[in-house]
Design a protein around this nucleic acid. Structure first.
Lengths: 151, 151
DNA sequence: AATTTCTTGTAGATTTGTCTACAAGAAATT
DNA sequence: AATTTCTTGTAGACAAATCTACAAGAAATT
């Protein structure tokens, strides 16, 4: 049992997250990528779910819907994403299509991101996949208990 | 090895941290505490290291020095901390002394914070202490590799 | 004694993130 | 056909975090 809040798992997570956020910004700046880690995360989500609608994308990255729209606008202005309303049978869906430049940039960043992720590893003898599962459970658990929404 | 950045440990950490941040704000609001989780973290640090100077406090909570000063000012204005320059032998040290009201509030929050921390736990069969050690190692590792400073 | 360094208080300025709101187009419902 | 709901684009207000800068007091160094 932790005696102090600042030594508890939630607070330790907060500190580590802040460092990793800075580290990612650092990596992106050093490599001269024209987008931020947040924008790359959106590109990655679009690769995972090409047909995702904006509101679900927002839930995926845990940001507000309007905020997410701003990221997409920025990506579109830079030419890496093209927003297009398309007919999908009887439905009209606004697709976020990754452009050729977007693909090239994504592949370029991916080829160097593994190195970054490995650099953030430590020697603690622990299964990373178990930790990720733990983090996901904590998220779902808290979102339900505290009724957390981002919009 | 994770195929996608958004499924990697650093990004999962970021998401979970954001949820826990909201959860903490929620808990503090529901309990009607007159201070924020950030301010409570400072109180907790002052309990851990009563004689800590401002610049080291800033390093402890991973915020900039000026930012930390603002938190202390807020805590002082609310009457939970008293800043006082004191002679300590040949040195003059600005001490951040917790007032009686500060002690009362700290104890009140502590008596309910364990419940909050337990609520954030999950059923994943994993040693929390190992995870905390992992997080601390990741932090130190990244701060060194990317030369991260907050000021 | 003079200079430099360290720590702190504090005031903008800037950036970033969040929240709210409204209009528009399309789909679903009545 | 009319109404309601869903999704999106976008703007403005607001709040939080960060950065920069400067002055002042004290300690350490020269």
């Amino acid at each position: 049992m932790p005696e102090h809040y600042t030594k508890s798992l939630p607070y330790e997570l907060e500190l580590t997250s802040r460092i990793l956020h800075e580290a990612a910004k650092c990596h992106f700046a050093q490599c001269n990528y024209p987008i931020s880690p947040e924008e790359f995360a959106i590109l990655d989500c679009l690769y995972l779910k090409p047909d995702i609608i904006q509101i679900d994308l927002a839930r995926m990255i845990l940001k507000g819907r309007a905020h997410t729209g701003r990221f997409l606008k920025s990506l579109e202005e830079k030419g890496y994403v093209k927003r297009k309303s398309e007919r999908n049978g009887s439905k009209t869906v606004t697709k976020n299509i990754i452009t050729k430049e977007g693909h090239a940039l994504y592949n370029r960043i991916c080829s160097e991101i593994d190195k970054y992720i490995e650099e953030t590893n430590s020697d603690v003898n622990i299964q990373i996949n178990d930790v990720i599962k733990l983090l996901q459970e904590i998220r779902e658990n808290c979102m339900e208990k505290f009724d957390i929404k981002f919009e």
